[in-house]
Design a binder for these strands. Sequence first.
DNA 1: AAGTCGTGGGA
DNA 2: TTCCCAAGACT
Length: 360
Amino acid sequence: MVVPVHSDAFAEKLLSWFGANRRAMPWRETKDPYMIWLSEVMLQQTQVDTVIPYYQRFIEVFPDPESLSKAPEDDVLKLWEGLGYYRRCHHFIAAVRDVCADYGGRIPDDPHIFRRLPGVGDYTTAAVMSIAYGHVLPVVDGNVIRVITRIYRIADDTTKTKTRMLIRDMMAALIPSDSPGDFNQAVMELGALVCTPKKPLCGECPLNDLCRAFQHRDISLYPFSPKKMKIPQYPVGLALIMKDGRFLIQKRPSKGHLAGLWELPGGKAEGDESAETAMLRKCREELGLTVEVCGMAAQASHVYSHFKIHVSVFSCTVGAQREKDLKHQPFMWITPSDIPSYAFPAVNLKLFQTIFPSVM
DNA sequence: AAGTCGTGGGA
DNA sequence: TTCCCAAGACT
């Protein structure tokens, strides 16, 4: 068992530093649990500077649970366009609808109830419950893992559940019952501004006198995690099917990758398939449409979390009428000026910029 | 438990 | 270029 550092000294120094160094963030101007909850969802795996404009636009349109619960899913998704991890958006909508249906639109002031909502895990529960309602629950995120493993010189694999539970327990021993929300935010702020992944500013750290890794001069060993595998790359073929000044887009399935977003038809190549063959196959399978290729409209590369793609967009014309009785996702014929009305993946927007430079 | 799920920024 | 990483949740 790791011997705890003196917890009172830890919290005192950290909160003092936080009081003088906390960054201004829109969600720090309120104690509305809905707004704090939204910020925590958007901040999942996403940096503060990226979230701020998305948060402000979202709150402007949907300032409370009621307005969001009544909104069409596509309108909400459009506000999330470009932020990534779109399942967060679908879950947040579903969860807020549950809150309106079951709790009169008031965010539950009970960790066990809040934790059951869709998209709400241990981190979000601790963050929202501590910041909005003062529950004494420690957060464990990437910042906390980095700060705690360095302070205590924990060399265990931080991808393991057991290690994260140890870190949670260390946090639980340190968190003060009179300001749990500020403490949680302070540890994360320290991780973001001082105790950074590379080149941490240990000279400016308010905790350097009790940091074991700093004392042993081996900060770079923490946190430890095994090397990640290289991710595969696939060719992707998409179709720009023009007809009477319009082109065809289709809606992705409601689950899985880029759920619910609109895109040009086509998809990943399988086996030895070329991008063009994959595009033709997908148009046939998903739209019942036979197309003829006229030329190449655009190309782009893009990296996702666990694979990367090289996209080729083929200019096409309709070669045959749509076959009947094929199940397919919803599709639309739109003009380039309609693009802002639909939520697209980032790579599609990048391609549109090349294909329709005048309207983008 | 390990894989899925986006995008942008920094070194 | 390439890699890592960011206020994680779900299966």
